[in-house]
Design a binder for these strands. Structure first.
Lengths: 245, 245
DNA sequence: CGAAGAATTGAGACGGCTCAACCAAAGTGG
DNA sequence: CCACTTTGGTTGAGCCGTCTCAATTCTTCG
């Protein structure tokens, strides 16, 4: 399940400025460079399992992974989506509370737990960056809680689509809030359902409903075209009447 | 809305060993001692509002506060419960994304944002502790996501009760997993409903159902007695068949 | 071309929501 | 001190959105 990649220099790393290492100076980067190793997990592969002990921490370099929990009777809820630059693992604790799986082929930049924990102690830049990233994840998790607790199926799906659009926008830098947008869904319907706390069927029905309402087009099941974002946004039901950034 | 308290020494502070300052040495503690101030917010008072800029960070010393978001049409979802030793605010960012309100009278130990951020930079013990606490909060938020996305009303209420029991246990140190337990609910039915992503009515009905099933007794609306925890736990539906710690 | 997996669609059941009445406890004012 | 209001909680009846179960279509890939 693992495939060693050619060593890439941190300097030309695609996630250099967004990952845990974002605030490192050259010296710190050199240390990380020394202990890192790349690994690729194929689509569908397990990256980590709840309860099992992890001896590597890592950053997602490319691809998309899911964080989820499965109940004894099979009910499943996704609680996190890991994209390039996101961090996996918990310094200071060996075990994880959730399953992590590759939704697409995923390339990881891994660090030995021990070595990384030492770096955190010696390099406040890494520690601070990790704190910021964790606080951001906490905000995401809490917004997700609002979605799961209070939004209707239609609102959830719209929210999901808008979040993908927003992410794409921040990645490419293009900040268009109107006009047509094309999306490649990184997740299957089943995964989207697990993401949104719905069933596959309800999720699918919402997509067709949105299509019939002319809010989206679906050239293929995995491709969504939004003719005009402005039509979608008023239905998103964000907080308190504030414009949904 | 604020009431200044007599200055209490950090040494005899009830949350000394669990809050952000838990890992501080005497020198660091002295610095914190110098910049802290106590404030009490009465039950129902707003501690902070989403979007507004906060110039104090603080620890909850006593009482119970809620973190929540309200949608434009009034739907409300609680996303966090703040108890003694929990931290409020985000170093490195002035604004909060959620409303924070006092569910009971709440006493806070406050620090000027600027001063505290300086401490974080100079004292890795505080930064590390804050990272650990944030990671813990993230785990809580994600378990909460599972509850909101996949559990039935009955399961949610049972989960809620068990989480209160567990918290009480860790506070007092007593770790009984069977036998009668008495709980004082810190939240009204409305707040519990917002916590669980349900309506007041459904929440109330679940309490009566549990009472009729003999799993709990309700001497008053705010007091729950659990005759035997063991009866409640199998219904909690925790992950994957693992015993619900 | 056939098989397996993914997605869609339909029909009916059910859990939780809405709306509304009712009740108990705690203030409040004459 | 007692009617009146207010607040928080419970209960009931009916509706609606989502789930369940099942059949069908579409897609991918050997």
């Amino acid at each position: 399940m693992n495939l060693r990649l050619a060593r890439t220099s941190c300097i030309e790393c695609p996630i250099r400025h967004r990952a845990v290492c974002a605030e490192c100076d050259d010296t710190e980067l050199a240390v990380l460079e020394g202990i890192k190793s790349y690994v690729t997990v194929p689509k569908g592969g397990r990256i980590a399992e709840a309860g099992e002990s992890l001896d590597h921490l890592s950053s997602v370099v490319s691809g998309c992974a899911t964080v989820s929990k499965t109940l004894a009777d099979g009910r499943r809820q996704m609680v996190g989506l890991l994209l390039p630059s996101d961090f996996i693992g918990r310094p200071g604790r060996a075990t994880l509370s959730f399953d992590i799986e590759a939704a697409t082929d995923v390339t990881l930049c891994r660090f030995q737990r021990r070595a990384f924990e030492a770096i955190i102690r010696s390099s406040p830049n890494v520690a601070r960056r990790l704190l910021t990233m964790t606080l951001d994840e906490l905000d995401v998790a809490r917004d997700w809680q609002v979605l799961l607790g209070r939004l209707t199926a239609r609102e959830r799906v719209i929210h999901f689509l808008l979040s993908l659009v927003r992410r794409e926008a921040t990645e490419t830098g293009a900040a268009h809030r109107s006009g047509p947008v094309r999306l490649e869904l990184p997740l299957s319907r089943e995964m989207i359902a697990d993401y949104l706390g719905l069933t596959i069927e309800t999720t699918s029905r919402q997509f067709t409903a949105l299509r019939k309402d002319g809010l989206i087009k679906t050239p293929t099941a995995r491709t969504i075209v939004v003719p005009d974002l402005v039509d979608l946004m008023p239905e998103a039901m964000d907080e308190d009447g504030a414009p949904s950034a």
